[in-house]
């Protein structure tokens, strides 16, 4: 039921078409002014998007409010970095006003109309993904990949997987992509590290990675627990009602006892 993206870093050729396509669908400025000049003002058809992104790829740079998907080079391996779309997302759990939502179909989406700008999501994300529009004065937003939730709602696949010329990133049902990833590892065990990154990390993510080199060499955090991070908070927060009730009773009891002691003292005083 839940969609996901499988990134096979052994297939990625570092063309950067996904980064460009992401910028086009999110109406973000392209790094190359020349490329921006080529961009038609009218909304592109999917075929037009493929053609444009593949001929104007962008590689490098860091994630920012203006780049929600980047292609990093680690040695001779290219790795896409974007939101992992966790199954039990940290950002969804920490946001005090519920500006984030894990949709049933997979994407983790952000609602700017609720956001107060506390940036706890950025602080808490184990992958360090969300970015902020620091330069905006009145209405800065948190920015991150939303797995083209709007396109998905129309039955289309995300722009980044659409434009990938070598199917290094593919879009599909998470269960099926996991099977596909297992197959690839089984068929070529010498080629792959025997691990599907994102299968179990922080309780599983809707973005999965395959790699030929250890994942820490790709800049992905490898010390993550397999328990979803919101549980770390919930284990404590869930005890709070009990703690408050117990503290209340205890304080009331102490108040009662010590107050009575005072009354007794008052009564005894005149006799002395």
């Amino acid at each position: 039921m839940s969609k996901a993206i499988l990134v096979d870093t052994t297939r990625c050729i570092g063309c950067g078409a996904c980064a460009t396509a992401c910028k086009v669908v999110n109406k973000l400025p392209l790094s190359d002014p020349g490329a921006a000049h080529d961009l038609p003002t009218k909304p592109l058809s999917d075929d037009g998007l493929v053609a444009f992104a593949q001929s104007h790829g962008e590689v490098g740079g860091n994630l920012s409010a203006g780049a929600l998907n980047v292609v990093e080079a680690h040695g001779n391996v290219f790795v896409r970095r974007f939101c992992m779309h966790c199954a039990d997302p940290t950002c969804v759990s920490v946001c005090p006003v519920g500006a984030f939502e894990k949709t049933q179909t997979g994407p983790v989406v952000y609602n700017q109309d609720r956001c107060i700008g506390c940036r706890y999501c950025m602080m808490a994300c184990p992958f360090g993904i969300p970015r902020y529009e620091w330069e905006k004065i009145w209405a800065p937003r948190v920015r991150k990949c939303h797995m083209c939730a709007a396109r998905q709602a129309k039955g289309l696949q995300p722009a980044c997987t659409l434009v990938c010329p070598v199917q290094a990133a593919i879009f599909g049902e998470r269960d099926e992509l996991l099977k596909e990833a297992e197959n690839r590892i089984r068929q070529d065990p010498g080629k792959y590290v025997n691990h599907i990154y994102g299968q179990a990390e922080v309780g599983g993510t809707s973005v999965l990675y395959l790699s030929a080199v250890p994942f820490e060499e790709l800049g992905l955090p490898t010390d993550l627990p397999h328990d979803a991070l919101p549980n770390y908070t919930y284990r404590v927060l869930s005890k709070l009602p009990r703690l408050v009730a117990a503290t209340g009773v205890l304080l009331g009891g102490i108040f009662w006892i010590t107050n009575r002691r005072e009354e007794v003292a008052k009564k005894e005083k005149p006799e002395k």
Partner: peptide, 26 residues
Amino acid sequence: YEVGRPIRIWYPLILWNPRSVLFEVA
């Protein structure tokens, strides 16, 4: 000063996320 959109500082009053520690703190 701290939040990006100070005019919305009171939003936790109407937009609830009881799973959030920050919601409780607010």
